[in-house]
Write a protein that binds this DNA or RNA. Structure first.
Lengths: 337, 337
DNA sequence: GGGAATTATCGATGCGTATCGACGATGCTG
DNA sequence: CAGCATCGTCGATACGCATCGATAATTCCC
């Protein structure tokens, strides 16, 4: 592998000049710049990351802490990961994976060894054991998700409360007076990711404001639980029933149960689910969905991180950013009168 | 951040002694070791990764090249990524993400800058533009998937041919004489990942050996295509029909179509799909599946990589490892007579 | 008990880059 | 044309660790 010294020799300049050509931190004459660039091309020189990190105290690597093999929601997690990695490259950074089975020790490790300049944490829970560590590390940390106590932390997430509100408003607007919200599956509820509470709270706020009734019914991955929830919903509804089912696993089961009861989506009953646009379109009756915008959340998380890194910020920062969600009405909700 | 020099000072030894305590490459007396370890604990010292990489010419980082936001199969890709990251840690390595939108240049970059000691490529296609680069890089590369010409490359994948054979054998054994194989969805077929061909070839081999008929029918993500394929299958079958549908998206549609025709899985018709055990169990009629063992493939890929790194192998290596697949018969296939 | 063979530790050097101070060359001002 | 600021480049040094050769301390054997 060629080094900057080799480049310097070929170009007939000093090594430091090569370094300045690359960084642009000192003026370089056009003539010298050309010579150096030619030498770089000729040798296909690429700077050594380790040496660069050692000298500059910056690795240009961001650690991404991914949840530990959750089985559920793997698809959506991958969307975050993928977009985060791509976006990081746009800011000339790379992504190092830190799996959550290493726990808080993993965070200390990658920061302590200075493998990373900062950390992005996914799937932050209400009371997360990683938070005290995150606060104590003297590198920037960006959380995707909002813990109960976000003080001293930089957080970003979809605006779940607005999402809940928006769903209820839209369903009320097309004439529903009783709206049933099916919980996420128990595995998610048990984890106390607080977006669930924020979403449900949003539905309640809208219900109160509009004078409609919102029922909260248990979700599950088995047909029986959902079936029971549907029964309860139908029993307490006089007009046409409406369902909000943000958990992807659940919405499939729900659709089948409704259709087996002879209810046609968009005609006898409204359903709002959550899925990427492409997935929603694939359904026999294209599903009206609330888009929680994982790609946008991911992009912004990286952007915030890179700004913090650039600012070279020492002191603890604190901020909270909510990404607006978007409802798309397709064919599974009643049409406006 | 404390350095090994600080540790040395606290322990009252030379910096090199600290280094030897950590690496174990020279004998150290019990007394000195204790002193050094105490100093390390006291200072919570962690070695600097950049300096270590610079001096040792090893980063202990493996680059993982992930497919570019494929939308399809994101869940299963995440399973690979997650297991690969965990396994790498067991070998005391870390994983750096390289997204495929950087293309072959991305590979050259991370290797050229010596951010990584080696590369794992996912989703290798039949004629992959990354292969010539992979061959020319002088670091170990492990492919997950098998290209048309694997010469000079180290490959690992599930044994798709055996999987195809196995499916046909088992269906023939319970009395099916005509077996329909539904292709993967067009998006996958178009990508020329060759596991598709290997699987289909396996079904043909078994069919020839057993004297049964195998039909290859087009797959799709829309109901119409699958419906048509089912029609064709039923038209050419005298006994009970049998389906093999390895694409997860397709198998759901297939199930619904069959049930809408009044065919009960495991009674009137056999279906073998592909899903993780947990997912398969969740279905109303637990699905018989062929397990392509993504976790095992991932683990072995990392293991092979770490062996190559340890061997410090210079010359080009070549190997091909196939991971046996496993069929689990649940309730969607006929019972043996 | 003296010399050889071990064992345990130290000091010095190199890895490849960033960056600081210095210095010669150039342009400008009066 | 003397004096001074500006521009462009160089040389030297530091970053933190691994590693090699050398040295000091200990043990062993005849």
């Amino acid at each position: 592998m060629p080094t900057s010294k080799d480049v310097a020799q070929v170009a007939g300049v000093a090594q430091s000049t090569v370094s300045y050509v690359l960084s642009g931190k000192r003026p370089i004459s056009e003539k010298t710049r050309k010579k150096v660039e030619a030498a770089i091309d000729q040798l296909t020189y690429q700077p050594n990351a380790g040496a660069r990190a050692l000298a500059s105290r910056k690795t240009r690597v961001i650690g991404l802490v991914i949840p530990f093999i959750p089985e559920l929601e793997m698809g959506s997690i991958m969307e975050f990961v993928s977009v985060i990695a791509s976006t990081a490259r746009q800011f000339d950074h790379d992504i190092l994976l830190v799996t959550d089975d290493e726990g808080a020790a993993g965070l200390r490790r990658v920061v302590g060894q200075q493998i990373c300049d900062g950390l992005i944490l996914m799937q932050v829970e209400d009371e997360d054991e990683r938070l005290p560590v995150a606060r104590s590390l003297n590198v920037p940390v960006v959380l995707i998700g909002i813990p109960r106590d976000p003080s001293g932390l930089v957080c970003i997430d979809a605006d779940f409360e607005m999402a809940g509100e928006h769903c209820v408003r839209d369903l009320a607007a097309v004439g529903h007076s009783v709206i049933s919200v099916i919980d996420w599956q128990p595995a998610v509820m048990d984890r106390h990711v607080n977006y669930v509470d924020r979403f449900l709270h949003g539905t309640d706020v809208a219900a109160k404001a509009l004078g409609v009734t919102v029922l909260h019914l248990p979700g599950g991955t088995d047909r029986a639980t959902i079936s029971e929830s549907v029964d309860k919903a139908l029993a307490s509804t006089t007009g046409k029933p409406a369902f909000i089912a943000p958990d992807r696993t659940i919405q499939d089961i729900l659709r089948r149960i409704l259709s087996s009861r002879g209810l046609t989506l968009g005609l006898d009953v409204s359903v709002i689910g959550s899925a990427s646009p492409t997935l929603a379109e694939l359904q026999p009756i294209p599903l009206s969905t609330i888009d929680l915008r994982p790609a946008e959340v991911s992009r912004r998380a990286v952007k915030i991180m890179c700004q913090l890194l650039e600012a070279d910020s020492q002191g603890p920062h604190e901020s909270l950013e909510l990404v607006p969600t978007v409802i798309t009405h397709r064919c599974s909700t009643l049409r406006p009168q």
